[in-house]
Design a protein around this nucleic acid. Structure first.
Length: 317
DNA sequence: AAATTTGACAACCGCGCGCCT
DNA sequence: AAGGCGCGCGGTTGTCAAATT
């Protein structure tokens, strides 16, 4: 099923369009419509291939094109649609009047993609990057720079580092929250399987939703959490075998799975069941590492900076 | 001030699909 | 049914200006 290339004719101009060429194209289309793109260049007096003309018209010269920066609303629409449609730029563009698929694609590649990556999300799946645990040492190292700043508050560089540290820790918190919530969804995969939009957790909307994170209620003491019930990334399991005997409670909050058909919500994880940074042992924040795998026998750092504490959660309440 | 790097955006390229003959 | 053709899509590259060194 061959097709003849339309742009390989010799002598046809390529590259940036001149104002004169633009004017010719606009004049012709306004008078006659574009008709056959293949025939248009000759009729319009342009030394271009039809494809080039079509692209120039649809992406730049069309009168209904909205120029300028994308608004936050448009940005949100793109994020939402991309989480559902993927790189279907033309489909996304149909929901953004005045924006072209090319413009949206460029905006995605230069802005939104980077933004998601910075937040620790995979730009393709809109899920937390599964390697985030591997990056935690780096994040913690950044966070620890706060001490440096406290000791050198006059130093500009330290101030910048502090800002980075705060950002990094914040991103890590987001990742933890997102990851465990998605684990919770995954544990209900019999009801949430498939790729419907409702089953997917979109990063932005997730944080604004009334999701499944609730303060633990005094009247309902947190049940014991068993590590074997938690979903830990496979990479994590490979590195760090988990104890099956851990059993503890926590008083700050519990992450619940979404109750299905009014069934009781199932607590899935509490903060103190988060693995410590350098070792998989479980205890309360601030506890010293009590497992033999701690190596030097000293207190292994737990995740106090990364715990999804009340203060953190209240930011998204 | 010049050179280099980075970012944003325009344009190109190749491919697949659907229509027509 | 097979092939030609036009069109649109998505990925990639090119260009240029701004920022940085």
């Amino acid at each position: 099923m061959g097709r003849s290339p339309c742009c390989d004719e010799n002598g046809l101009k390529k590259g940036p369009w001149t104002p004169e060429e633009d004017q010719k194209l606009v004049d012709y289309i306004q008078k006659h419509g574009h008709g056959s793109w293949r025939a248009l260049p000759k009729l319009a007096g342009l030394n271009r291939c039809g494809k080039s003309c079509r692209l120039r018209w649809t992406n730049y010269l069309r009168p209904d094109i909205k120029r300028g920066k994308f608004s936050p609303e448009e940005e949100q629409i793109i994020l939402n649609l991309h989480s559902v449609l993927g790189n279907k730029w033309s489909a996304i563009a149909t929901n953004l009047p005045g924006r072209t698929d090319n413009e949206i694609k460029n905006f995605w590649n230069t802005h939104l993609k980077k933004k998601l990556i910075q937040m620790g999300f995979d730009p393709m799946t809109h899920r937390p990057r599964t390697d985030f645990l591997a990056t935690l040492p780096h994040l913690i190292a950044l966070a620890n720079l706060k001490e440096l700043v406290d000791n050198n508050p006059w130093d500009d560089h330290s101030m910048r580092l502090q800002a980075e540290a705060v950002q990094a820790v914040h991103a890590a918190k987001l990742q933890c929250l997102q990851y465990f919530i998605q684990s919770a969804m995954g544990s209900n995969s019999s009801t949430n399987s498939g790729s419907s939009m409702t089953a997917e957790l979109e990063p932005m909307s997730l944080l604004n939703s009334q999701m499944m994170v609730m303060p633990s209620m005094p009247s309902a003491p947190a049940p014991a959490v068993h590590l074997q019930d938690l979903q830990i990334p496979s990479s994590f399991e490979q590195q760090q075998p988990l104890s099956n005997e851990t059993n503890h409670q926590d008083s700050s909050f519990i992450v619940f799975s979404q109750g299905e058909n009014s069934t009781p919500r199932t607590p899935l994880i509490s903060p103190s069941s988060l693995p410590p940074l350098t070792d998989i042992s479980v205890g309360n924040p601030g506890d010293a590492c009590s497992t033999s795998s701690c190596g030097d026998g000293g207190a292994a750092p737990f995740w106090p900076e990364l715990l999804l504490d009340d203060t953190f959660l209240s930011e998204f309440a």
